[in-house]
Simulated assay, not measured.
Amino acid sequence: MVVIPVIVRTRSLRGGHYRAGLKHGAEPGDIPPGSLTEDQLAVLRADPDLEVEIIDPPQEPPQPRKKKPAPAAEGTGAPAPGPAEAAEAAEGDAGDEDFGFDDDPAQASGAEGR
């Protein structure tokens, strides 16, 4: 018995009836993932009085990134950040470097024309 890992949405075209051990109403209803077997899904799809729609299970929403705790001021009794936190904080400042790009477009275009 293989369980179907997707959401199955059904709607009865005759106002409501039972099929494959489940009640299907006139309004669309969702059957959660893992609730149907392949055989039950085949029975639902074969019923001419049912609309059957397969919906992929919703993806996990992206988890928000955890904020780094602010470094504690000296003398507050809070522990100082460890080496890993200090390295991450140093990486955050890396975007302030000058990469040597010219800020004046006139100079850049004049050098290319030579």
Rank of each mutant, 00 (worst) to 15 (best):
Glu85Pro: 03
Ala46Met: 06
Asp96Glu: 15
Asp39Val: 07
Pro83Glu: 10
Leu44Asp: 05
Lys66Gln: 14
Leu41Tyr: 14
Ala84Asn: 08
Glu53Asp: 00
Gly100Lys: 05
Asp96Pro: 00
Ala70Ser: 13
Ile55Ala: 00
Asp102Lys: 01
Ile55Asp: 03
Ala87Thr: 08
Pro83Trp: 08
Ala84Glu: 14
Leu50Gln: 02
Ala72Lys: 09
Ala94Thr: 07
Asp96Cys: 05
Ala84Arg: 12
Asp93Ile: 11
Asp56Val: 04
Pro79Lys: 15
Gly82Leu: 13
Lys66Val: 14
Pro64Ala: 15
Pro71Ile: 12
Ala87Pro: 01
Gly77Tyr: 00
Arg65Leu: 14
Ala87Phe: 11
Gly100Tyr: 11
Ala89Val: 01
Asp102Tyr: 05
Ala94Tyr: 03
Ala70Asn: 14
Asp98Ser: 12
Pro48Ser: 07
Pro105Val: 03
Asp104Ala: 03
Asp47Gln: 06
Ala73Cys: 01
Ala86Tyr: 02
Pro61Phe: 02
Lys67Cys: 08
Gly95His: 14
Ala72Asn: 08
Glu85His: 05
Lys66Met: 06
Gly75Asp: 10
Gly75Trp: 09
Arg65His: 14
Glu53Lys: 00
Asp47Glu: 12
Gly77Met: 00
Gly82Tyr: 03
Arg65Met: 13
Ala90Trp: 05
Ile54Asn: 06
Pro71Trp: 11
Glu74Pro: 08
Pro83Gln: 10
Glu91Asp: 15
Leu44Met: 12
Ala78Glu: 12
Asp49Tyr: 00
Asp93Met: 10
Glu91Ile: 07
Ala73Asp: 11
Asp56Gln: 09
Pro64Asp: 15
Glu51His: 02
Ala90Cys: 03
Glu60Arg: 11
Pro79Leu: 15
Ile55Cys: 02
Gln59Tyr: 00
Asp96Lys: 12
Pro64Met: 14
Glu91Met: 13
Ala42Phe: 01
Gln40Ile: 03
Pro71Tyr: 09
Glu51Leu: 11
Gly92Val: 13
Gln59Lys: 08
